[in-house]
Structures are given as structure tokens and as C-alpha cells.
Design a protein around this nucleic acid. Structure first.
Lengths: 345, 345
DNA sequence: CTCACAATTGGAAACGCTTGCAGATACTAC
DNA sequence: GTAGTATCTGCAAGCGTTTCCAATTGTGAG
């Protein structure tokens, strides 16, 4: 590091100033190894007055610990992902860890180069992989990095993961609508994206279908519409669904809150009242949910991100016990976007 | 790095396998220094077949170049910031650089520790500082890192910056409303946040006031309302503004698109028609703008992020010429949220 | 064929830290 | 007092690269 005049100050300078050896400085600052109270104080004081910050590269090289965690995300510009990242980054910052971000984006090529190049640069103590649906080959590449991996939102064979049970939550959401007396229920389902990622929308659709089947209600194919996970995408789809000359569903189960919000705004722009003309339920716990009175299952992604980071850190620092995969229990939040259908009132 | 069996392979192994010295391997792979075509090919082949990826820590330590850029942002969960980050990260990924993310959040304490500790760990070639309104002391700390800094969205004395002219854009937005014939114009202005960051909302408010003054129209204090930069925040504020028993403005200039969207949804929930009852104009180019027909000044944050990253990279690689600060010209996008006021129709 | 010079190569010294080892010092129990 | 331990310390050998330097090889001109 550099002091105020821009000259680099190293552990050697601190040692000299404190009148001890470099080894003692290292031990005093890192806390590992025994150092007398007297030396410790002198070192701390010298380090402080010189404004010493250790070179993490040198430290990593010598010790093998980098104090840096890699985070792979498919995008940072959608609410779920940025929330997760918020949680991860806050936790790591507080623990003194650096975070290197691998934003793989839409192209499989980027994901490839991250897996085969970036992650293997020996700069990471571990990686948090967010919502990645990896091929077996890619999973192998990921694990070959030789560092602990925690997955979030997608299954990764061989790594601890944090996730919700998409099937079960979708079923619950559908049952909420059924319980209110709805029978004309549409599902706004997600399309595969990032050239993978199909399990999540598929599981939510299956949960919907299972609930409908259990209730003995056939699903109308035209009420099963797939669109991307964005607000505008769902907005368009919902407009077609609600505006058509065909029979209109009395309720919509959207595969995500962003889609639910798109549906609500679509309904409103068509002059339909939510929930009197159409009920809408989503999944996620989106920050805008409150504004639209959205009934949803909150899966608290920021908390999930923080938890994932903590799982990884505990594995690193307690050097051993692999953390267990856990299913998160989302919290059901009933607001004003769902109600008994008009026909029953 | 590790080969398929998890054993670390170093430049020494490559050298041995290619039958040359480590020095030659280094030169062949980095491209600096002369290497015969024959050696180069043998090295490349050996590296390929061993699956060699260099240790960036070792490389950084020896060369002083880290191929890693730090990015400071106040949050990642708001559209503007995540868009910027998207642009920065994509550019850096393509250039082969790592990106370490410093998400300082709301607390000044975090910003302090990033400036005085994290950034000084000798892990960065440069830093992109996004929307940071730093005190002179903090600017000094930032520059003391001794690496090139590019600022985005806020002025940083001593660093090249990318930004829009908030005053001028706000004035243009207001003039757009004036030009349509509006005289009853409210301004939804931003509050200081992240314990700083006051220049941006202030400049936009000043631009508004300047345009109004030029038009000879007094600004009603009750139509100058400050709220945070979020959709829900502005939604609440706009509801109070539009629902009250008091006289209602015929147009709203919102300091950001998120605020404008909050205003539009508020109007709609009050049964007001946009733009027939109230016109709304914003600044930003938010992705949801199209859905709400929002008239706005698009400042393309993802592009700004990419540009900032490129500025930094060019300074690093062409080793010299400090990049120049530039003002971005936002693009005026007229949609359907603004129209001639009812009184003139 | 020789010479001057350019291209290529390997040896080895950094880069700034951590840590095993062994010696020195301090403490405890007899 | 002594022996036996536990604590503290410094030396020096790494960690895996890059790069300076000197030595070697190759090239073109004369």
C-alpha cells in the first residue's frame, strides 16, 4: 500500500518502525500465532501510524487464502438478482472479504469463459453461484475450481444450495386462488432464459397444474401463457389474455412478482379492477408488491444472499463441515390483489 | 490452477512439458518479449493440454498489474445503478478483467472502510466510482489509492468523469411542458440519500426553477415536493399531490423515471388519465418507461457504464493519456405521458 | 568467412507476504 | 536451584509469476 506521499509501505517498514521482525508483524496483524502483548501493541501502533494495509496479492500467494469470494449471476439488472447480490455483498463487506462479480449475461459463451478461465485464476476462496442452471459438464467445471461452492436458486449437484421449493410454492399459490372460490384460473408462466434456466418456470407450472388437477379443474390451454420474466413482457401477455373476445379468467397466478405486476398494470389499463374483476397472485416478495397490493409468497432474496454468503464463510473459516443444502420457507403475504371472484359475491 | 485431477499446475509444469524455461513460457503467454514462433507454439500447446491458467495473484505481485478493476456503487438494487454495473461488467468481462464490487450501501461507515481499507489492498489497477458524492477528504482518500479513477454520475475533483448536465436536462424537461402550454407544473424532486448525493437532485430542481423563472411563472411551494428516488416513494408523494383538495397541477416534472412512474401509477389509481388530466415527464430512460408511455430524457446508463470502463482500460493499456471528462447528451424520447393541457384543448 | 547487431533464451532476483523451524525467554512445579 | 513446558521471536524458505541481465544463437552485410 501507499502512504500519503504515494510511496508504498510494506510489512518491512512496519517491522522496522516497531523494532520487531516481519514475522512478528505478520502474526500480530493476522492474529494467528503467539505474540506478546507488548509486541502486538507496538506493531499495531506502527501499522496505524504508517497507514499500512497489507498487499492481499502477496498475502494470498503466501497463504493460499485470498479473502475474496466470486459471485456468478446471470444478470444484475433484475430485481431478484440485484437483491441477492445486495445481501451477498453486504455480508462479505462486513466480513472484510472482497467480492468479485461474474455477471455472465445472456450468452453461454460468457458463462463458459467464466467457468474455464476467470474462476480458475486462483483468486477465490469460494464461489456463490446464483440461479445457474448448469449442464453436468459445467457443474464439473465449476467444482474443478477446487473451492467451496454455494448455489442459490438452482440445484448444483455436489454443492450446498439454498432454494425454495418451486413446485410446492406454486401449488400453494394456486390453492389460495382455488380456496377463494376461483375456478377460471390462468397461469402466466416463465420462459427459459439465459439459454438454460428452465427448471424454475417448469416447476412452478407443474405446481399450478397439480393444484388444478387435485381440484378436478381442467386447465384451459389458452390460459397457460408463457412469457419472459419481466414486467413489460408479462404486461403484454396479460393484455392479450384479458382483452381478447374469449372468456376471461377470474384469476391469474403469475410465476413471479414482476409478471404479476405486469398483469396488474395490464388489467388496470384495460379498465378492469383488481381484485374485483381479476385476482392476481405472484411469487417473490418484490419491493413494488406493496404499491400494487400484490398478494405473494415472499422469498426474501436479499436474506437468501446473505445466508448463502454466511454458509460459504462458515465453511471457509471453520475449515471443514460442508454446509447443508436448505429449502427456504417463503412467507405468504396477503394483500389486496386477490379476492373472492365476482361470480360468488 | 488445477488440472482435472485437482492437482495444481504451474508455469513450471508448462515449461517442463514444452521443454523451455519458465521465462520463455511467461513471455510466450503474455505476448511481451520476443519468443520464436517454434517455442511459442510448443508453449501454447503444452499450456492448452495441461489446462494451465496462470495464478493472477502471483502475476499481480510480480508485475504490478492486477487485471482487476474496482467498482464502487451506493447500491445495486436500483435501476440506474444496476444498469451502470451491467455496462461496466460486460465491458470488463470481455476485456478479460476481473471486477471487484464495492457496494457501499447507505452507511457512511462502509464507504469509509472501502476507501481506507478495501481499495488499498493492492488488488486493483483502477476504480470506477459510480454516483459518489464525496467529501474533499474522501476524494483525497480515493486518489491516494494511486490508481486511475473514472467517476460516473458525480463530480470527482482530480478524476475523469462521465455525467449528464443535470441542470440543463431538467431545464429542457420543464421547457417541454411549458412548450405544450402547461403553467401549473409541479416538480417531484429527490432527497439527499446515501448520506450525501445532494448535488443531483439539487441541480435538477434548479434547472426546473430556472425554466419556470424564464417563463415568468412563479413556482408554488406546495408543488415542489421532495421524496426519495424510488417508485413507491414518489407514488405516495404524487398521491398526496394529486388527491388533495387543493388545486391540482396539470403537469409533473419528476426528477427521475422511477419517480415519474410512481407519479403515473398514482394518477391512474386516482382515476386520472395520463396525459389528459396530468402530463408527466422524467429523466433517465428506465426500462419500464415504454410500458407507461413515459416521455423522458434517456441517459443510457448501461452505455455510460461501458464507456467509463473503456475510458479506464484505455488509460491503463495505453499507459499514459488521462482520459477527458465528458458530458453525455441524453436522448429526448417523446411518448404518450405528455400532452397539451386540458384547459387548452 | 568475419563482424556487428538483432533475436532468442535461461538463470535468478525480485514482488510482499506467511509459516515451519529452531533458538531464546518466561513460567511452573518440584 | 533444576527440569520441563509453554510462549515468544527471528531466520529463511517458500508462494507462482515477471523481468533484468547476460549468454547464446541467428542474420545480413561486407
Amino acid at each position: 500500500m501507499r502512504d500519503e506521499s504515494g510511496v508504498s509501505v510494506s510489512i518491512r517498514d512496519v517491522a522496522q518502525s516497531a523494532g520487531v521482525s516481519m514475522a512478528t508483524v505478520s502474526r500480530a496483524l493476522s492474529g494467528r500465532g503467539n505474540v506478546s502483548e507488548r509486541s502486538r501493541l507496538r506493531v499495531l501502533e506502527a501499522a496505524e501510524s504508517l497507514g499500512f494495509v497489507p498487499s492481499y496479492n502477496a498475502s494470498s500467494l503466501a497463504s493460499g487464502r485470498t479473502r475474496n469470494i466470486g459471485v456468478m449471476v446471470p444478470t444484475v439488472s433484475r430485481w431478484f438478482f440485484s437483491s441477492v447480490l445486495e445481501g451477498v455483498s453486504k455480508t462479505l463487506l462486513e466480513a472484510g472479504y472482497d467480492l468479485t462479480l461474474y455477471n455472465t449475461g445472456e450468452q453461454a459463451g460468457n458463462r463458459q469463459s467464466v467457468l474455464t478461465d476467470f474462476l480458475r485464476r486462483q483468486r477465490l476462496d469460494g464461489v456463490v453461484a446464483v440461479s445457474l442452471e448448469l449442464s453436468p459438464k459445467e457443474v464439473a467445471q465449476l467444482l474443478r475450481v477446487g473451492r467451496p461452492v454455494v448455489g442459490l436458486g438452482g440445484p448444483i449437484e455436489g454443492a450446498a444450495t439454498l432454494h425454495i421449493d418451486d413446485f410446492a410454492v406454486a401449488r400453494l399459490a394456486t390453492e389460495h386462488l382455488l380456496g377463494l372460490g376461483h375456478t377460471d384460473i390462468a397461469h402466466l408462466s416463465g420462459t427459459a432464459e439465459f439459454e438454460r434456466d428452465f427448471a424454475l418456470p417448469a416447476n412452478r407450472r407443474l405446481g399450478f397444474e397439480a393444484a388444478m388437477a387435485d381440484a378436478g379443474i381442467p386447465v384451459r390451454p389458452e390460459w397457460l401463457v408463457a412469457t419472459d420474466f419481466t414486467i413489460p413482457g408479462a404486461h403484454q401477455a396479460a393484455k392479450r389474455l384479458l382483452a381478447g373476445p374469449a372468456r376471461r379468467p377470474s384469476a391469474i397466478f403469475a410465476a413471479s412478482d414482476e409478471m404479476a405486476i405486469g398483469a396488474i398494470t395490464a388489467a388496470q389499463q384495460l379498465g378492469l379492477h383488481v381484485p374485483y374483476d381479476v385476482s392476481v397472485v405472484g411469487i417473490d416478495g418484490h419491493e413494488l408488491g406493496g404499491m400494487f397490493g400484490l398478494t405473494t409468497f415472499d422469498q426474501a432474496p436479499a436474506r437468501q444472499g446473505a445466508d448463502a454468503a454466511r454458509m460459504l464463510l462458515s465453511e471457509l473459516e471453520s475449515d471443514g463441515a460442508k454446509p447443508q443444502s436448505r429449502a427456504i420457507e417463503p412467507e405468504f403475504i396477503v394483500r389486496t390483489s386477490t379476492a373472492v371472484p365476482r361470480s360468488l359475491r
